[in-house]
Design a binder for these strands. Sequence first.
DNA 1: CAGAAACGGGG
DNA 2: GTGTACGTTTCTG
Length: 638
Amino acid sequence: MVKRNIVLLDIDYITHDEKAVIRLFGKVKGGESNDIIAIDDSFVPYLYILPLEDIDKCIKDINGLKEEGEIEFTKLEKVNKKDLQVPKEFIKMTLNHPQDVPKYRDKIWDLNSVKQLREHDIPFYRRYLIDNALVPMAELELEGELIDSFETVDSDDESLEILKLSCPPKTANTDFQEFRMMSFDLEVRNPHGMPNPDQDEIIMIGIDSNVGVRKVISTKGDEFDDDEEMDFIEIVETEKEMIERFVQTVKDANIDIIIGYNSDNFDFPYLRDRAKRWEVDLDLGVDGSGLKFLRRGYANSAAFRGLLHVDLYLVMRRYMSLDRYTLERVYLEFFGEEKIDVPGERIYEFWDNGGDELKNLFKYSLDDVVATLKIAMETLPLNLELTRIVRQPFFDVTRMSTGQQAEWFLVRKAYEVDEVVPNKPNMTMNNIRERGSNSGGYVKEPEIGLHENLVQFDFKSLYPTLIISKNISPDVLVTDNISYNAKFEDFETGYDEIDSVLEETPSEDLDEEDYYVCPEHFFKFKKEPQGFIPSAIEDVLNERFRVKNRMKQTEDPVLRKSLDVQQQALKRLANTMYGVYGFLRFRWYSFECAQAITAWGRQHIKKAMKEAEDFGFKAIYADTDGFYAKYVPEMKKE
DNA sequence: CAGAAACGGGG
DNA sequence: GTGTACGTTTCTG
């Protein structure tokens, strides 16, 4: 029996003897940085069935399906869980294999005695992370036995350990970890429009890293042999050799995270095609496996097992709000300087002409990877913190919308309080049209001119605070007497006349003894008990408060910085939580809750503007959760 | 005008 | 893979 502390980088499952086996990919802590794959064959797939009325009849029907050979499963048991805080008896069905879930779920759902299937669309590896309370990119304690080989693991890495777990892994701590990161970028000779992998060769592969490797691999460049400025060039004979050198460089540097810019869509697909042409193995997976393309909707993600690939373009689109997200634009935003630029359609000329032009092309190639790495070092810490809070794989988190991040955070929270998570709503275009659109925050267009004596007013985290203080949550929403028509009428009135708003008296507090009642729509939310979403947001805000306090107490600049990133991540998550109500296809989607939040938000800012006016501050611009006001003493009320 | 298709990033 | 982006702009019939 051996024990290992590892940093958990990635997770997946494979099928072994017709059973699903979880594989945890990590690096051993302490001593040399060894790769490790931990195997857990003890975790089984399951789902919940909500019976229509008679639970025993339902069990009988499901067993009947099994006897007819329609479905297969290993166990049925009655379990008590909560559904939107209402205790209910569910049937927990345990199955042989994760893929049996989509295979049989429709047949079960079609039974008359079955009301609903629940938690039937949670990927197996995510279920494993949630049920074992594991934190990706954090330290994990493993116990088990080392084995020589397992399934398809075929790696030339001498230091790789395979550990068969004898008990579930435990999270050891969630402290800040250092990761070995490398950025890369391809340059292609494409004289005829966009690069075509059937004809256009790769001419340069740029590499930068936080472990001392920085170079451009190319078949040209010997003319700069004596130029010290150009000593980052590594010359090879052929394109094939270039790709082989790239693969070897990543292996030798023992990289945890490989970073590209739009590499899901360009660099890795291109590299795959060119590597295939020259029969080069891109076997960068920790288990010796090659490059995989995972379908994500209509797009693909490039992935290696156990080597984390981040496409920084996707990260940047979430990280900041810009008009465009070219590498140049993002770099300018961060560092205030222009990158070296070579127009894409002229790269082949620079390559063919040689001399100073070729020199510039090399510099451009290096500049691209240096910029990519610099931006990654600025932005990935926040994404690492989000990963630890959301507790889903880093690879997934960097490709999730903020709404999905919030949703998976809530799926985990639900498990902790014994809630069975809601299914995803299946909204059709008709539902959406019938429903109309929600109005957003209140905006007062700025008064044109140069203003003096301005004061700024902001609500701190307006929407998260409102969700908590008004207990806005689907599980405490009073649903009697809500119809879409009624909502529609209320919703058309009263708040859209931007200029006349200050003459209007903001609606009085409508709250009743047992309910908070929202303006405009008059939806009622029970004051007790606390709703699931408000309680989850409160947890996030409390955690942020604790982190900020720890920050105040420490003098250590490194710890301070990492705590600061942590509290930023928590703030982002709290602010995103509003989205779970407003975005279609989300498990906790509730148009009523989304409307209530923005309605209360508009009421609050208008009230604040009105009160400011009484003190002589005239609002000249307002947006959602804050406004600017000008001091006009004559407006002041006595 | 509504519904379909393209677009983003990359060279 | 316990799966099938996304929101917006431009084109087309």
